[in-house]
């Protein structure tokens, strides 16, 4: 500090603190710090811990025993794992039906008639109520003795079908229940998206003679791309974490036929009969890798969009 000995001129800057000098660079990190801290503690570090635990045989109480990849080897020929994996795929594919369904309800509700706000909120209602309630309502709906579902199919001479007790129908039954709130969610996304559709483009298309499906497909849907993207993201994530409905409606049954990976993981590691933390962690790792594909794709397309601007 050779300058210290010099007499300070009136115009020389004051001796500022380190923080003041670096304020612009430091402040964002300070604001981010709590979020980064909690994200590390609750998300990032547990991911690596799961990887670690999956290499052990551990009941959560006693000492851990290192067993290498044995948990994965066992997973490889565990029929319950494949049932869960298959159901996860069915969920992923069928859950996407919520997107077109939400779009058509949104188009239907996108008009100005008396009381439209009320209708919109009624359609949005299933998303507001808890998944547990949705599960219970559908359990009663499907009930083989007094359920509405069997009464209705009875009118056309079918049934009774024990939807939640029959291994062939059970997963589809639960997905149908899940689609109810998910469709409402997609609908609200599209309703906001439709507000942003450019009326001039519609008018121009109309002058060019576009109408009906062509108008929808070539003019409206492209403008809804941001809404579609978000709807796609939330639906995929919703399908992969479909835990509460299964837990409420069937508890994974009958004989484990409605399990998905997240539910199987819970059952193996944390439920009444589960004490296998290592095996549960191995399932979690597999689920994480599956999710990673989607996450990577979403991040990539977001990055591409950002750069395109």
């Amino acid at each position: 500090m050779s300058t210290a000995s010099l007499a300070r001129s009136e115009y020389a800057p004051e001796n500022r603190s380190w923080y003041k000098r670096n304020e612009i660079r430091v402040t964002p990190w300070l604001f981010l710090a709590p979020a980064i801290l909690f994200f590390l503690v609750y998300v990032i570090i547990p991911i690596f811990q799961s990887f670690e635990i999956s290499l052990f045989s551990w009941d959560g109480l006693g000492p851990r025993e290192y067993i290498g990849t044995e948990n994965y080897v066992e997973l490889w020929d565990d029929p319950a794992f494949y049932t869960s994996l298959k159901n996860n795929l069915i969920w992923l594919i069928l859950y996407l039906l919520a997107i077109p369904a939400g779009l058509f309800i949104a188009l239907f509700l996108n008009q100005t008639v008396f009381g439209i706000r009320l209708y919109k909120s009624l359609f949005f209602f299933p998303f507001v109520i808890s998944q547990v309630v949705v599960g219970l309502v559908f359990t009663w709906f499907y009930d083989p003795t007094f359920g509405l579902f069997n009464t209705i199919i009875g009118w056309v001479g079918l049934g009774p079908i024990n939807v939640l007790g029959d291994p062939t129908y059970v997963t589809y039954g639960i997905i149908a229940a899940g689609l109810w709130p998910q469709t409402a969610y997609c609908m609200i996304l599209y309703l906001t998206g439709l507000n942003a559709v450019d009326p001039e483009q519609i008018e121009a298309a109309r002058l060019d003679g576009a109408k009906g499906w062509k108008m929808l497909w070539y003019v409206v849907v492209p403008q809804l791309k941001p809404a579609t993207f978000i709807a796609f993201v939330v639906t995929i994530i919703g399908a992969l974490r479909s835990f509460d409905l299964i837990s409420v409606m069937t508890n994974g049954g009958p004989f484990g036929e409605s399990r998905v990976l997240s539910f199987y993981m819970f059952e193996v590691a944390l439920s009444e009969y589960g004490f296998r933390m290592g095996y549960g962690a191995a399932i979690a790792v597999v689920l994480f890798i599956i999710m990673l594909f989607f996450i990577a794709y979403f991040l990539y397309s977001m990055y591409r969009d950002e750069r395109g601007r």
């Binding site: 499907y142 009930d143 083989p144 003795t145 009774p160 024990n162 939640l164 007790g165 029959d166 049954g253």
Partner: peptide, 11 residues
């Protein structure tokens, strides 16, 4: 086989 148990007990 006799049909001793109620139907749809899994539900």
């Amino acid at each position: 086989d006799m049909g001793a148990f109620i139907d749809d007990h899994t539900a």
